[in-house]
Each structure stands twice: as structure tokens, then as C-alpha cells.
Design a protein around this nucleic acid. Sequence first.
DNA 1: CGTGAACTGGTAACGGTTTTCATCTGCAGC
DNA 2: GCTGCAGATGAAAACCGTTACCAGTTCACG
Lengths: 140, 140
Amino acid sequence: MTTARAGRARSTRQGVAVESLLEASSGFRSAQDLHAELRRRGDAVGLTTVYRHLQSLVDGGSVDMLRTVDGEALYRQCADSRHHHHLVCRRCGTAVEVSGQAVERWAGAVAREHGFTDVDHTVEVVGTCGECSAGPAPSS
Amino acid sequence: MTTARAGRARSTRQGVAVESLLEASSGFRSAQDLHAELRRRGDAVGLTTVYRHLQSLVDGGSVDMLRTVDGEALYRQCADSRHHHHLVCRRCGTAVEVSGQAVERWAGAVAREHGFTDVDHTVEVVGTCGECSAGPAPSS
DNA sequence: CGTGAACTGGTAACGGTTTTCATCTGCAGC
DNA sequence: GCTGCAGATGAAAACCGTTACCAGTTCACG
Ligand SMILES: [Mn+2]
Ligand SMILES: [Mn+2]
Ligand SMILES: [Zn+2]
Ligand SMILES: [Zn+2]
């Protein structure tokens, strides 16, 4: 009742591999990226299967997906299953989950003001995290 | 000095066609959509050229581009060249330009709070506009 | 064990976008 | 008005992330 998982019926080596790798990652990662790392570390999973599990996780609500400006899909395991947004470092990709009451209220108000209903919204904040701005300059 | 146009060096029939069609459109439109309408109305432009002009306009800052969830790029001529966001109807695509002081403040604050600098953000609000929710039901 | 539904993964297809390159054209300079 | 040519065009091919297809594999259950 509590977990509205639309997950797979069986637990497989591949499914566990994808899910746990994403869980161990700190930021958004692409399917191909995950696939490459799995292959590199020995326990390989087909690219198709990586996509399948990521899609299941997104459907289940435990993973967020977003599109980069050049059309690539990025996935991230979210600690909080409730509605929230991300503050992402443009350098290292690390993401912090943030909730924004102010934004929720604003979105609702601006929509109502223009006669819109069934409002939904997407908010992404990108910047350079403290660690990266203190770290080595992007020389080469 | 005022216009920081990174536009093309020459004025061509094709460039004018793309720009004015987008100008006459009320919401976000895809490159293929624009290409199809130009072809339909007789004054045809190569798809490649449509993409090229849209890219120039985006670079010049007079046009906004966003990605749909399935990776398609959508373009819109913005009336306001200053920073703003859009309230888009998920049914008819009509977009209203809105500025959100509350969101700007929130984004800055939440970033500062987590030690992030050089903050940027994207905010999109989608809903059903008054006209569409009053109009014909999405039957067939 | 035996059966079948779920799962896997190589390969092919898909679709939007970009690159390539031969051809064309706006326009600055005569 | 011409001419020259850098800039622009567009059909076709390449690109690339993603999805569909489908034959083979795995696993829960009787
Ligand atoms: Mn929100
Ligand atoms: Mn803003
Ligand atoms: Zn960082
Ligand atoms: Zn509408």
C-alpha cells in the first residue's frame, strides 16, 4: 500500500546492478554512461536493459529524468519521493534536492491569474558548487 | 550597441520567411512544424535552412528554445527580450510570458544557502488555458 | 522436472538534428 | 548595371540517443 512501485515482477542481477549503481551516484547520469561503467566494472548489462530498468524506475517514481539542452536523457535516484526540485552543479553534476514552497505558490498563483488550470511545473537550478569553485581551475 | 544580434550577414527570402512565421505564431513550434507550414503555403524553405535560422535566432537571444520530454526542440519568438518564463497550455500550445520576482529570489536564495555560485535556472509552467478547458472535450 | 510468463540483449529501425558539399545568390565594390 | 565571392541554400547522408523487434534465457510455481 505504501510503495506504489510499478516495478518489475522479478528481481534480476541486471536490475539490481542498474538500480544500485544509480543509487551510489551523486548526480544525474545518462543511460549510456551507466551502461559504460557497468561494462567497465565487469558485470555487464545490455544497453537495452539499462534503458528498460531506468524507465521502470521513472514510472515507479523513485527516479527523476530530465533532458539536457542537446536532447540527452539524464536520470537520478531521488532520496525524497515527494515533489521537489534540484540544484545541480554544472561542473561536477552533483545535485542537491530542494523543496520550494515559494515556487509552488508562485506557479499556482501565476496560473490562476491567467485562467489556467491543472497546473504543473518544472524548475531546475544550475550553478557551480562550493567544492568546484574552490577546486582546480578548468585549465586544459 | 543596443541590438546584440548575432544574426546572419545577409537578408534572404528564407530567413525572412522563418522569422516572420515564428513571429506570427502564438506558442512554441517545432522546426519540422514550421517547415511543413512554409511548404504548405507555397514559399518553401529547406528543412536544414529552417534549423539554421532558428539556431541563429536563439543565439541572438530573440527566440527561446526548450526540449519536450521526448527530446524535440521547440522554438518561440519572445515579445520580451528580458529574462522571463512561460505559462504554456498543454492543449493548444499558447504561451503567456510571465516574470517571477518570487522565483528569481527563491532560486538565488536556495543556491546561496548551499554554497552555489553563478546560478542560472529554468522554469516552465504548463496547464490548461481557460479557452481550452471551456472548449470542446477531447473526445475522439 | 516441465511449463510459461518475465526478462535479456544483439541487431535493426526510428526520428530529430547536424554535417557535408555542390550549387546558388545577395551585395559590396567597381 | 556588371562581377566576384563570401555567405547562404538544400538534398542527401551521417549522426546519435532511444526504441522496437524477436529469438534465446531465466525463474517461480505446480
Ligand atoms: Mn515545484
Ligand atoms: Mn527566472
Ligand atoms: Zn561541483
Ligand atoms: Zn489552450
